[in-house]
Amino acid sequence: MKYQTRKKALVLLADGTIFYGKSVGIEGTSTGEICFNTGMTGYQEIFTDPSYFGQLMVATNAHIGNYGVNDNEVESDGIKISGLICRNFSFTHSRVDSNGNLKDWFIKHNLVAISDVDTRALVSYIRDNGAMNAIISTDVDNIGMLKKQLAEVPSMEGLELASKVSTKEPYFVGDENADIKISALDIGIKKNILRNLAKRGAYIKVFPYNSSFSDLESFNPDGYFISNGPGDPEPLIEAIEVAKEIIKRDLPLFGICLGHQVIALSQGISTYKMHNGHRGINHPVKNLLTGKGEITSQNHGFAINREETEANDNVAITHVHLNDHTVAGIRLKNKNVFSVQYHPEASPGPHDSEYLFDQFISNIKSVKKVLS
């Protein structure tokens, strides 16, 4: 597609600021909270991560689409972002094992995407002014109408979104003859989490977001897992109750991202919406138990209160984010429970933190050994 034939498009922020660009060829309008990801690769995994549901994604990498798409590189059943904003969009791709180009994939999923935006200026503006709702559109002559539409978009704060991305029915992953069984609460789970558990000899039953503890317990699991996901954790009353029941029984429990926040809330630790979240594949974290640094993949706009965590006699901080010293991991004292704010399964991202899956499996085996 020639540059000069492409339709104009815009990004309108909630505070009235406008950035202009070009449509990639899919006309329309889309809304959501605007955020940015600093990863240099892995765009397909990012676009299909359920944690991004309801968000407009700004890609800081200057080139998007250059290696096409591959059906095996998705983290859910489809695209979860509300729309894409990028600098340079590649209509052609060059990778041997790609299944097609990014534009056709976006057309298939009816995703509005705009390019030729000054993303460096846009990201700088968001960093200074904080996360906010936005609208992207090819209807550049109707700014007044777009402002009215944007004003009706709910804030991410207080918004429950797990129900929008969770499975509707339970399903199984892994070898049914495996020695370890895990019940996983899906509040926005990524496929690579399940792959990491399965390759470590676990058979997993994945449950919908509103499942009760008795539902999860009916699988007679050896351990429990609470997944990542989108939105504000505080409205997830049912998931918080599930965490409380698991912890009360001192059963092996592991939580990632939104699951980490749910576990914290179950212990009376509050969460808050960050000025800007952590989204990228190069976030530095320090493991306070080993003293080692880890480069991690992160995607979250909420965090748990550090002061309340430090004041809680039942909780210990295990990991901290080295950029802003937010809590990146906790464990419960005298309980078989731990969680992290980041993504040890990566996809995309580094593998520094995969040991956490080994730690979870080891915890489960230790309990099984005692019980046997």
Results as ranks from 00 to 15, higher is better:
residue 202 A to T: 12
residue 343 H to V: 05
residue 249 R to D: 10
residue 63 H to D: 14
residue 21 G to M: 08
residue 183 S to N: 08
residue 252 P to Q: 03
residue 29 T to K: 01
residue 243 A to P: 00
residue 330 I to W: 02
residue 86 C to F: 03
residue 182 I to E: 00
residue 206 V to P: 01
residue 363 N to H: 09
residue 12 L to S: 05
residue 110 N to D: 15
residue 264 A to E: 04
residue 72 N to A: 11
residue 230 P to M: 10
residue 79 I to L: 15
residue 197 L to M: 10
residue 130 G to F: 06
residue 160 E to Q: 10
residue 335 K to T: 09
residue 355 Y to G: 04
residue 199 K to R: 15
residue 232 D to K: 00
residue 370 V to H: 07
residue 250 D to W: 04
residue 194 L to I: 08
residue 238 E to K: 15
residue 12 L to F: 07
residue 209 Y to D: 02
residue 158 G to C: 06
residue 292 K to I: 03
residue 265 L to M: 11
residue 212 S to T: 14
residue 123 V to A: 15
residue 67 Y to L: 10
residue 235 P to G: 03
residue 342 Y to H: 15
residue 352 D to M: 02
residue 226 I to S: 01
residue 148 K to Y: 14
residue 267 Q to E: 11
residue 346 A to C: 09
residue 76 S to P: 02
residue 304 I to V: 15
residue 99 N to G: 12
residue 227 S to I: 10
residue 170 P to K: 15
residue 222 D to Q: 03
residue 308 E to L: 12
residue 301 G to C: 08
residue 159 L to T: 03
residue 6 R to Y: 05
residue 313 D to S: 15
residue 266 S to I: 02
residue 212 S to D: 11
residue 282 N to L: 09
residue 1 M to C: 12
residue 271 T to Q: 05
residue 188 G to M: 07
residue 108 K to Y: 10
residue 20 Y to N: 14
residue 266 S to N: 03
residue 115 S to F: 05
residue 247 I to N: 03
residue 36 F to Y: 14
residue 206 V to R: 00
residue 121 A to R: 12
residue 99 N to H: 11
residue 358 D to R: 04
residue 35 C to Y: 12
residue 29 T to M: 01
residue 19 F to G: 02
residue 35 C to H: 12
residue 279 R to S: 13
residue 13 L to S: 05
residue 157 E to Y: 10
residue 2 K to S: 14
residue 3 Y to E: 14
residue 108 K to H: 11
residue 117 V to T: 06
residue 240 I to T: 06
residue 145 M to I: 13
residue 368 K to Q: 11
residue 72 N to M: 13
